[in-house]
């Protein structure tokens, strides 16, 4: 490789800029000072115990987990249907249907949230975790479809034909051949939808019933300077959590490629 000292230092500087705010998380999460300011005071785990003692935070975390698990499952299932149909079959209305499914990718999220809210309000549907879930599924499904489409596309059609040729039924072929081979894609879709949902703010804020949801709760707490250190502790935990989840997703993806005997061609985005 050619040396490019200027580009290299620029890139490192860029990474530093990207990471700078995140690096503050652990620094001040373990700092005993009540105010987020240099110089650092002493080491403490106090903010973590304050975080763990926060009853509302626990409820918010539980709600977010329920939402994220439901959203990830629903959008992955809906994504499997849509991706499989679009890769495998041609049918009338395919382009407009796929366009509608992918539309939230190019719409400001606020508009999706407000349109849904207006309809829910006029139908007198009470807002709840459930309304947050159905709204978030709209946002995450395009990601699921994109990931799963590439998983189904890399599946050689003759593998399915071979299974049919060897006497399997359509369902047997799907269960024994298609499903195991797209499983890494399904896992990746689930993990990414989970992460997006867990982090999502607008729909959680407007379609939630006022029940605490983690992202909304964090947003609220940052306004109170006294609460900031324990929020930084929470942020530290969440960042570690995301990195573990992402590492796992990347591992699954590589295993999937190795399984299919393919070559690695970059990240899973």
């Amino acid at each position: 490789m050619k040396k490019a000292p200027f580009l290299r230092s620029y890139t490192l500087f860029y990474l530093l800029f990207l990471y700078a705010p995140i690096l503050l998380l652990p620094i001040f999460a373990f700092n005993s000072g009540k105010v987020v300011a240099f110089p650092l005071q002493g080491f403490t785990l106090g903010w973590f115990s304050e975080m763990l003692a926060d009853e509302n935070l626990r409820i918010a975390a539980k709600n977010s987990l329920i939402i994220a698990l439901s959203v990830a499952s629903m959008s992955t299932v809906l994504g499997v249907f849509a991706a499989r149909a679009s890769v495998r079959y041609s049918f009338p209305g395919k382009a407009p249907i796929m366009g509608l499914i992918m539309l939230p990718l190019v719409l400001p999220e606020m508009i999706v949230a407000m349109a849904l809210l207006v309809v829910l309000l006029s139908l007198n549907v009470p807002l709840s975790l459930f309304t947050v879930i159905i709204g978030q599924v709209l946002i995450t499904t395009p990601f699921a479809v994109a990931i799963l489409t590439s998983a189904f596309q890399s599946l050689d059609k003759s593998l399915e034909e071979a299974a049919m040729d060897l006497g399997e039924t359509a369902w047997g072929t799907f269960r024994l051949i298609v499903l195991p081979l797209v499983m890494p894609g399904i896992m990746a879709s689930f993990l990414i939808c989970f992460t997006i949902s867990f982090d999502e703010f607008i729909i959680s804020n407007f379609l939630g019933s006022g029940q605490p949801i983690l992202s909304v709760y964090i947003f609220g707490q940052f306004r109170f300077p006294a609460k900031v250190p324990s929020m930084l502790a929470l942020g530290t935990v969440l960042v570690c959590f995301s990195i573990i989840l992402l590492g796992f997703a990347e591992y699954m993806r590589r295993r999937g490629i190795a399984k299919a005997g393919g070559k690695d061609s970059g990240g899973f985005l």
Partner: peptide
């Protein structure tokens, strides 16, 4: 990409 996958709310709040 890691920073992108860490909570957007936390990044902005930071």
């Amino acid at each position: 990409t890691i920073p992108f996958w860490t909570s957007y709310i936390i990044r902005v709040s930071l």
